[in-house]
Write a protein that binds this DNA or RNA. Structure first.
Lengths: 225, 225
DNA sequence: CGCCGTTTTGAGCCTAGTCAATGTACGTGG
DNA sequence: CCACGTACATTGACTAGGCTCAAAACGGCG
């Protein structure tokens, strides 16, 4: 819940390790593994972009703040996702651990060389970046034009797709306020809409828990517009 | 206002030409120049992504639609901007000419080769993509968390920065409905908010025109949050 | 001059936000 | 083991910012 730029300090706290990743597209160049506790900050908007990252386990939220504290979470990064790569010298958003998280940090100043040398790596980076852009574009449509119900239907289906094994039941890694700040809503509206879904039999909801069961994916998809 | 995929047809309509671009970062590989009339469609969501593009003059709007016609314009592309590059086989959004537009089309299947051969070009593409992502992240903050006034203040300052010579006066290339669909508002709210700005002396506004004069950039910036 | 696309303005409504209280889970220490 | 505190989630009553529907005004062009 503090610490400006854990990247540097953490990187030295944990022994560097070489990983042959589970990446289907090929091996990944070596990086440094890091562990983050719930709520820990990986980097803040404006920090020097010394590293970029790949999630191994857990979830990262990346977000921007307005001067008065309003927050927009532009993405949740789940295992396999690459994030934190910048065009300029500084990070353009902040990143925190949603729960306990394991990530691999890659030195950015090695990026040019890696891209030069390793065509497969280059491709992975380019594809990851383009995929982030696509997600951002989809999310702009959601933020600008969807209703609260549609936003939550889209969100639940996306989460099921990304984290559920059986595609029907999963535990949300983040709390209501994270969901609200991701969807451009308030926590009250998120909560009310979820209970409304539950009452309509679209989802199953344990009281005050993060477990979600999708009872009627069809109906949710039709809400998704 | 029609035509599915003008890319192919147009490309043959206009003689291919080799351009040494005004690009500061270096020469650009050859592309095919195209002209588009106001409202013409460059490509639609779902079209095969055979080309990607750079704007020479005019403005392009790229957007997504919901099934009931609600539209979100995720970006306006102005001279110099590169857009339409995809990770997959298909375009993930549609693109139309806001007014009369000149663009250069690059064959996507030559991209891999170009990236392999030309480090400067690779850098331009990567930087352009990352810049799009940054713009998208800034825009998500706007869509999710800013008020109508803040949205329009941000938009006007951004446009002044991008198209104004003297930084004080410019003509908007797009109509109110485009602005509304970009900012997640209705045309009525856009119009009302602009009138309100004019009455407060923040901007100068010719009746029913697209000319904008910024009288008080300071005040606009403070609205920008 | 008259038509049409666009913008502006007005009146009333509704979705989501605000403010406030209650409920639930969980960890800590007596 | 249970009382208490804290963090998070839910629910309710009320408000308001922006939307909808409707009409008028403006500008360009045939």
């Amino acid at each position: 819940m503090q610490a400006q730029s854990l990247a540097a300090s953490q990187a030295s706290k944990f022994p560097a390790a070489v990983f042959g990743l589970r990446a289907p597209a090929g091996r990944m160049p070596a990086g440094t593994q890091m562990m983050l506790a719930k709520g820990e900050e990986l980097f803040a908007e404006g920090d020097e972009a010394e590293y970029f990252y790949q999630v191994v386990s857990g979830a990262i939220r990346s977000y921007k703040l307005l001067s008065d504290g309003r927050r927009q979470i532009d993405a949740f990064h789940l295992p396999g996702d690459i994030f934190g790569l910048e065009a300029g010298k500084e990070h353009r958003f902040s990143a925190e651990a949603v729960g306990d998280v394991q990530v691999i940090a890659f030195r950015r100043n090695r990026l040019a060389a890696l891209i030069e040398d390793d065509a497969a790596f280059r491709d992975r980076i380019m594809t990851a970046t383009l995929r982030s852009l696509q997600r951002a574009q989809d999310h702009m449509l959601l933020l600008g034009r969807k209703t609260a119900q549609e936003k939550l239907a889209t969100f639940l289906l996306d989460m099921a797709d990304r984290i559920s094994k059986d595609d029907e039941h999963f535990d949300l890694p983040m709390q209501r306020s994270d969901i609200a700040d991701h969807l451009g809503l308030t926590i009250e509206t998120v909560s009310r809409t979820l209970t409304q879904f539950a009452r309509s039999g679209l989802i199953q909801l344990m009281p005050a828990s993060r477990s979600i069961g999708l009872c009627n994916k069809m109906a949710l998809k039709s809400l998704d517009a």
